[in-house]
Design a protein around this nucleic acid. Structure first.
Lengths: 349, 349
DNA sequence: GCTTAGCACTCTGGCCAGTAGAGTGCTAAA
DNA sequence: TTTAGCACTCTACTGGCCAGAGTGCTAAGC
C-alpha cells in the first residue's frame, strides 16, 4: 500500500516519536518537534487518515496516536534503512565486551548476554544444529572400567562428547582401529548407513563392535538433541524494565515464554529459510504469550552454511533500527568466531 | 526464648494459617478454625503479647497478625518437625519425574526443575565443585592440526573436557606417555606442584611438555570455573505466582537476583559447612534483593563427600515443611544418582 | 481544494469525601 | 484469668468533581 511521500514521513515521525517516548503522539507534539510546515490541525487530519488505513490507533478519544502492528510493519519495510550506516557499526560496537572465551556452551551464553547488553532487550541464541551425521571425525577414549568417551568433531569443527558404558571391555588399540575405520567410512556415508552395513557384515561375531556402533549412533542423537538444539536466553530481567511490562500479568506471560525453550526454538527457526534479518511484529508472532512483543532474528554461519539463529526479543515499541544493527553485527561476529575456531583446527596454524 | 506451651501453639496456628491463606490472621479466624477453648478476646491478648516479644506484627491497626522473620525462625526451629514423617516421603515423591538422563549439565538442569516442580517455588542447584586438582585421571586426545582435547576425570567420577591449541605439533604416543606420567604424579601431588617440578626438571629442553602442562593447568581452572561452578535455576517464573510478588518492583528485584548467578552461588555456599538442611528467612539473607524471600538449602554428596548445594527459593510465606522435605529428598536422590555413575565407572559392571 | 483557527466534546487521572467492613485495644464484669 | 461489649482506627471501595490533554468538526482563509 503506497502512502505518498508526505504521509509516509508523518507515519515515520509518529513511530519514531512513539518509540522514543513511549507516549501516544499528539498532533501538537508532532507539529513542534518536526518541521513539516503544517499546522497541528492538518496533522490531525492526516493522522485520522492513517488511522482509517490501519496504520495508527487511538487508546481513547482524547489521546494521541499509537502505531498498530501494521504501522510498525510499514515502518520497518519501507522506512528503516540500515545499510547506509553499516560502515561505522564496527566502530560503534568495538567497545563491546569480547566474545569467545570458553567452549561452545559458554560462547552461546556469552552471545545471548552480548545481544542483550547491546540492544537493551532480551538476547536469544540457538546453538548450532548441524545436519544429522555430519561428523568429520569420531574418536574413542577408554576411561575406566567399561566406560568409553566418544568424541564427535562435527563438520563445522565443533567438539562434543558423550560418555557411555559398554557391556564388555574393549582395549584402546581396538578403539583406535575402529575410529580410523569410521573416519574413512564417514567420507562417503552417514552414521546410519555405516551402522547398517556393519551389522550385515559382522553378523554374529565381533559383537563388541556392533554394540559400540549402536552406542555411537545413539550418542550422536543425544549430542544433537542436547547441546545442539539448546536455546540460550540472556538479559530476560532487563526487558521487564520497559514500561509496557508494568502489568504483572504481561510480565509473567513473557517470562514463562522465555522458560519454554522449545517454543522459542521453533519461533527462531521459523526464519531460518528467509534471507537476511527478519522482524516479527506483535501479532505476526504465532505464540500468544509473546503478543505485544517483537522479535528480530538473524542467522549465523559456519563455513558459509547457516547453522543457527540468534535474535533480540523486546516490546513492539522497540528501537528496531538499533536492534537490527545489533543482530546483524552479532551474527557476523559469531560466524567469524566459529569460523576461526574451525580454521585453526583445519590448517593447524 | 521460651514461650510456654499455649503461646507456642498459638504462634504455630498463626504461622500455619498465614502460610496457608496469605491473609493476616484475625483473632476471630483463629478462634473459629482452631479449637483452643479460648475466646477471640483472649487470643487477642496473647497475640498482642507475641507481638510485643517480636514474633508477630500488624500491617495496620485494624488488620490481623502476620509473622515476623523472628516468628518464622521460632516456628521452624521448634515447631516444624520433619523427621517423624520421613518414612513415607519416598512414596509421596515416587510419582515425580525421573532424573539422570543426560550428562552432568542436563542432570543439574533437570534437578533444578525437579525441585521447582515439587516445591512450587524456584529450584536452585550448584554444580559439583570439587577440591582444586582432585583429578583421578587426565587424558589427552590429539584431534586435528595442533588441537588437543584434554579430558579430566575428577575424583568423584565426573568427566569434563576442554579443547586447547598448541604451538607445536605433538604426536598421540607422546600424549599418552604424558598422560600416564600425570596419572602417577596425581596420586601424591596437586597439578600445581606437578607443573612446578616439571618446569624445574625439564628446564629448556622438551618445551612442548612444559607448554602442555601449562595449558593443562590453565584448562583445569577453566573447567572448574565453568561447569563446576555453575548455578542452575529452575521454575523462576512460577515463584512469581505467589501474591507477595504482585508488586512489579519486587518481581524485578527477584528476577535480577536469579540472573546474578555469582551471588546465588555465594548464598547457597554459605550453608555448605552447616549440618543437614538450613533455612534462611527474609532478613537473615545477606542480599538485599532477596529481602522477603526465604531459602531452604541442602547439600549433596559424591562418595560421601559434600560436593555441591541445592535448594528452594520462595517468599518468606513458604510451605517450609514441604520445602524442607523436598530439599532433603532431592539431595539424597541426587547423591544416589551421582554415586551410581561413579560406581558404574569404577567397578565396570 | 487544501490548510488553518477556533471551539465544543470526550476521556483520563488525580483528588476528595463518604461509607462499609474488618479487626483491634481497652474497660469492666464474671 | 477470661470474656463480652464497645469505641476506635484503618483500609478499600465508591462516586463526584475538576483540570488537562487532545481530538473532531466547522467555518473561514489562501
Amino acid at each position: 500500500m503506497a502512502l505518498g511521500e508526505r504521509n509516509e514521513k508523518i507515519l515515520q515521525a509518529v513511530v519514531d516519536s512513539y518509540i522514543l517516548s513511549g507516549n501516544p503522539v499528539a498532533s501538537n507534539v508532532l507539529c513542534q518537534r518536526y518541521d513539516f510546515g503544517l499546522s497541528s490541525a492538518t496533522l490531525r487530519n492526516i493522522m485520522a487518515e492513517l488511522e482509517e488505513m490501519g496504520f495508527l490507533t487511538h487508546p481513547h478519544t482524547s489521546a494521541g496516536r499509537v502505531p498498530t502492528d501494521k504501522g510498525y510493519r510499514y515502518y520497518i519495510d519501507t522506512l528503516v534503512c540500515v545499510e547506509d550506516e553499516t560502515d561505522d557499526i564496527e566502530d560503534r560496537f568495538s567497545a563491546a565486551p569480547r566474545l569467545g572465551g570458553g567452549d561452545l556452551h559458554a560462547l552461546m551464553e556469552e552471545t545471548s548476554q552480548f545481544l542483550a547488553a547491546l540492544s537493551r532487550n532480551a538476547g536469544v541464541v540457538v546453538a548450532p544444529a548441524e545436519p544429522e551425521g555430519s561428523y568429520r571425525h569420531i574418536e574413542f577414549v577408554r576411561l575406566r572400567g567399561r566406560q568409553v568417551l566418544i568424541i564427535f568433531v562435527t563438520a563445522s569443527g565443533l567438539v562434543q562428547n558423550k560418555l557411555i558404558d559398554l557391556d564388555e571391555s574393549i582395549d584402546q588399540q581396538a578403539l583406535n582401529t575402529f575410529s580410523r575405520f569410521l573416519d574413512e567410512e564417514l567420507e562417503s556415508r552417514s552414521l546410519f548407513e555405516i551402522r547398517k552395513r556393519l551389522q550385515e557384515k559382522l553378523g554374529e561375531e565381533k559383537q563388541v563392535f556392533t554394540r559400540l556402533m549402536d552406542e555411537t549412533y545413539q550418542a550422536s542423537h543425544d549430542v544433537h538433541g542436547r547441546d545442539a538444539e539448546k536455546v540460550f536466553v540472556g538479559g530476560a530481567a532487563q526487558v521487564l524494565d520497559h514500561p509496557e511490562f508494568a502489568n504483572v500479568e504481561k510480565m509473567k506471560a513473557l517470562l514463562r515464554a522465555f522458560e519454554d525453550k522449545y517454543k522459542l526454538l521453533k519461533l527462531l527457526d521459523m526464519s531460518i529459510a528467509a534471507e537476511g534479518i527478519k522482524v516479527f511484529i506483535g501479532s505476526e508472532n504465532p505464540y500468544f504469550e509473546m503478543q505485544g512483543c517483537s522479535l528480530v532474528v538473524g542467522k549465523y554461519r559456519v563455513a558459509g552454511n547457516v547453522v543457527g539463529t540468534l535474535g533480540v526479543i523486546g516490546p513492539t515499541r522497540m528501537q528496531y533500527r538499533q536492534a537490527i544493527q545489533v543482530v546483524d553485527y552479532t551474527s557476523r561476529l559469531l560466524s567469524r568466531i566459529l569460523d576461526e575456531r574451525l580454521h585453526r583446527g583445519i590448517e593447524g596454524k
